[in-house]
């Protein structure tokens, strides 16, 4: 399904990045990093409009020839980015949404761990397994 799942802190540094073809990991790092441009663009546009509850799911951030990059921003401005292959046409918007929801839930569970300091790289095995299940 997804080829790359990333969790990015409020300050835009990576908390967790998992990619499936691990040998070209760096390529996804670049992709995810660049996608932050669009995330911020979308968040700032929403912020201007009203104070109403913003939808967390940002939708397709930007497509490339081979990949589609989707974004999600929690209320605490933690960003989730999921990269899927363009050729994978079975994944519709709804599936992506549910993936993000799952990721968010798992992230919140992980955050509830009192031994985890928010802002530190995520090392939780449970979280990692959940992410792997989406890939």
């Amino acid at each position: 399904m997804a080829v790359c799942v990333a969790v990015i802190a409020k300050e835009n540094y990576p908390l967790f990045i998992k990619t499936i073809p691990t040998e070209n990991e760096l390529k996804f790092y670049y992709t995810v990093h660049t996608s932050l441009d669009v995330v911020e663009e979308k968040v700032s546009v929403v912020g201007k409009n009203n104070n109403e509850l913003r939808e967390l799911y940002l939708g397709l951030l930007y497509p490339t020839e081979d990949y589609k990059v989707y974004g999600y921003v929690t209320n605490t401005k933690v960003k989730f980015v999921i990269v899927v292959e363009s050729s994978n046409t079975s994944l519709r918007d709804n599936e992506i949404r549910s993936m993000f929801r799952k990721l968010h839930n798992s992230y919140v569970d992980m955050l509830c761990n009192p031994f985890y300091t928010p802002g530190e790289p995520i090392t939780s095995k449970t979280f990692e397994n959940m992410v792997l299940s989406m890939m």
């Binding site: 300050e11 540094y13 911020e40 663009e41 530190e120």
Partner: peptide
């Protein structure tokens, strides 16, 4: 005022 990461104190915006 603790940043989430010591090296990074301010969110870098676009």
């Amino acid at each position: 005022r603790t940043g989430s990461d010591a090296s990074l104190d301010k969110q870098v915006t676009n």
